[in-house]
Design a protein around this nucleic acid. Structure first.
Lengths: 226, 226
DNA sequence: TGATGGATCAACCGTTCGGTTGATTCCACG
DNA sequence: CGTGGAATCAACCGAACGGTTGATCCATCA
């Protein structure tokens, strides 16, 4: 499955190969420094966008057996968010453990991350040891949630996070740009009727009543960039 | 935490001593890795809050001649922001060059940083080379602003940043929550006509054509929370 | 193979929004 | 003391939105 000179099992003391995904070079350097400081973890590649991340996993899987863990920032600048990237990874490359790191610990973010298939959610103010432990746990298939987050997320114990389809995300992105239904229809080569159908589905899934609120909620849940 | 064997003058090609201020251990590690990768820069101390930063500068100045540059995150978690810390540093320890780093490049943030006395404003997605150059420039007393930010701040082409009135901000906050004009009117104890008037002013000032886009632009410019 | 869910489209209808014009009050600034 | 900006309100109208129902096509999946 991976570097055969070390081990071909998933022994807990073998080297863990990590793919870093963050749009900030500084943060990537920091994560790399922290992760590699203990010796057992090694960063085999870095990506700064969702697209790069997908490509990197592809490449790594076809040549090296793939990364053991993907450490992904929830925020990736312009393009798709870390949540979206995680969802896509889950659909195309099942079984790759993703650890989401974020600056803030909004309950909705954590829920969105877990719904998207992430095997962990860490804050950027986590200590080096916490980060390394979380990576190990994720590699072993365990879900890692710091106590303070877990309490808030599980304590609230509400409903499930409904997941939006890729097309619905497209619509949402257009919405955020202030486009009218007509403009969205033209831009996506579909009819206004279809746009309205998607919109109604989106409103239902997000629990909102209009487009403006939909954008706000989508942003808060990192479903779209921004 | 430092290295007195290198130099005690401020010659331009001597080692530059840096104080890092950021509340995220990962980001500090990243900044340190990037800054020290070239050899001429050395991080002599780190702080995670404004108070720690002030204390660190105090200590460094009384024992070693102080840091040559303070690299400060604009966001420092709970306590005072990097902007506030910069202001305080300017009042109590004149002459310490501060370089602000931020995730976003809101014009208002840049203006606030410069007003507070910062000698530079960098985005976290800056390259390693940009960061190191900016530190050198700041140490030499020059203001460093990446081209893309400078253009926006100095109004290269467009116009001034239109300022919204407090009432308009109120309206904008309600907009972001997805409220209808009727709901906004009720919530603010005014008529729908007034809401519409404010809305039209807002659209004009922000250069947008509808409420959804207005919220997006307002958020991007940090005019409202979120 | 039937079921499910995503994506597409249509027609209808009431509500809300956005644009415009014009007006009044209040306060700050010079 | 006038000027101007901010905030308030009214009335009108066309355009856009939101809700609803119902339908087709297609891929995936049990």
């Amino acid at each position: 499955m991976r570097d055969s000179t070390l081990s071909d099992s998933t022994l807990s003391d073998s080297t863990l190969r990590i793919l870093l995904v963050d749009d900030h070079p500084v943060v990537r350097a920091g994560l790399r420094a922290v992760l590699e400081s203990a010796g057992r973890l090694v960063v085999v590649d870095e990506a700064s966008t969702a697209a790069e991340a997908l490509a990197a996993v592809d490449r790594l899987q076809s040549t090296d057996g793939g990364p053991d863990v993907v450490v992904m920032d929830i925020e990736l600048g312009e393009g798709p968010s870390g949540i979206e990237a995680t969802e896509r990874l889950g659909r195309s490359h099942q079984g790759v453990p993703v650890l989401i790191v974020s600056t803030y610990g909004a309950v909705s973010d954590v829920q969105a991350a877990v719904s998207a298939g992430a095997l962990g959610f860490l804050l950027k103010d986590a200590s080096a040891a916490e980060l390394r432990d979380a990576v190990s746990q994720a590699a072993a298939g365990s879900l890692v949630l710091p106590a303070q987050l877990a309490r808030r997320v599980l304590g609230g114990g509400a409903g499930q996070e409904p997941s939006l389809s890729p097309r619905e995300i497209d619509i949402l992105e257009e919405l955020a740009r202030g486009r009218t239904n007509q403009q969205i229809a033209a831009g996506l080569f579909i009819s206004q009727a279809t746009v309205k159908t998607h919109l109604n589905h989106i409103f239902g899934k997000l629990g909102v009543g209009n487009r403006t609120e939909a954008v706000t909620v989508a942003r808060a849940r990192h479903l779209i960039r921004g």
